[in-house]
Design a binder for these strands. Sequence first.
DNA 1: ATAAAAATTTAGGGCACCCTAAAAAAATGT
DNA 2: ACATTTTTTTAGGGTGCCCTAAATTTTTAT
Lengths: 220, 220
Amino acid sequence: MASLTEENYLKLIYHLSGPGYEEVSTNALAEQTQTKAASVTDMLRKLAEKNLIHYKKYQGVRLTEEGQQEALKVIRRHRLWEVFMVEKLGFRWDEVHPIAEELEHIASEELINRLDAFLDFPESDPHGDPIPTASGRMPSAEYEKLAEVPVQQEVIMMGVSEHTAPFLQFLSKSGLIPGSLVQVLEVNEFDRSMTIQINEAHPSFVSYEVARNILVQTKV
Amino acid sequence: MASLTEENYLKLIYHLSGPGYEEVSTNALAEQTQTKAASVTDMLRKLAEKNLIHYKKYQGVRLTEEGQQEALKVIRRHRLWEVFMVEKLGFRWDEVHPIAEELEHIASEELINRLDAFLDFPESDPHGDPIPTASGRMPSAEYEKLAEVPVQQEVIMMGVSEHTAPFLQFLSKSGLIPGSLVQVLEVNEFDRSMTIQINEAHPSFVSYEVARNILVQTKV
DNA sequence: ATAAAAATTTAGGGCACCCTAAAAAAATGT
DNA sequence: ACATTTTTTTAGGGTGCCCTAAATTTTTAT
């Protein structure tokens, strides 16, 4: 029903509206879609006609329930294909995003549900992001930022909130991958950088910029 | 480089030009693409500009070497995804074609070569059609039609030359799937129908229309 | 409160891929 | 051989998604 371009808009609106489902601005969409604001306005009018978004001129945009379900389907497909590529085909976690951007538009529900089963119903993708269920619910992953963990605390690395290839490659090189045991040894008050220990290895140093993009869970 | 629509044209020209690489007519393409002849002419002009086809007005069309390589890439992807869906996801052979029509346009060579390895470098798809190699060669499968096998001869079912779901479903129901051992028990001279035995089972009856769409190999 | 700046929409147009109608070329039948 | 039929191309136009330029609304700053 929704075209490839429409699906990309819905997914983007979902991501940009954040946990509070705030209104998304035309300019924010133009920036992320690599298009101009005028083109975004065109598309918003179309999505509104299809009842996929709530749209009042000059007022920003929110997904309707229907639009959100569409967005979650696309995100589910994206993340399942990422799991497939890493777990079954041996890709690294920093390589799979661009290919999943294409695979996510293959619509067959049968395909995606069988893939889900083949992968043993994973709950999160290789970056730690939760996978929406077949029934259209996004599991809420309540992680905290490594940057906010107090000294001495031990945590488990669960995922990232920044998905660029260079960042992911840097983490791999440091041994910081989902599942790692991390202990905060020292926090530098001045620039909020940290010294941490990863899986019993030698202490490592991470900047605040890095630490705030790493999601962790307090050790159970 | 080639758009989704262009890829579909190249694949279609490949299939319609047959083993002898004969010229394909505008009307034949219009019929198969579910479009009108005028639209086909538009596209042919575009493909010729990109050096993917040899095209002289009113003279029909052939693939260039470059165009054939593109077509073989698409066919390779299509057939590998079909193997994946049947072997790994448990689809039936009559279900996978429409989904593979979408998956075949995901261009990543890395993806497809890793998929190839994951599937153990299959030589043919679930319908017995050969899978082009990564280097762009179509393995020649020299099978004969079941319809041409003499009485008493034992053969192995290798594939089909008709890929519609109803035909494939009929074959499954009869136990006629690639790998089956088939012996021709009797041929009816009048309508060329056959009585055959499949894998030691009770004798079955197949019409000429069915027998000429089943590809077999003489038992080794 | 209102002028200036920023954000957004409208107007008008381009390219890819499709259409119908009409013209042109090729194939066919006598 | 040539009139008729069939095939193919050209002409002109439509929709989806993008653009620039100009107009409009909202926000910000004084």
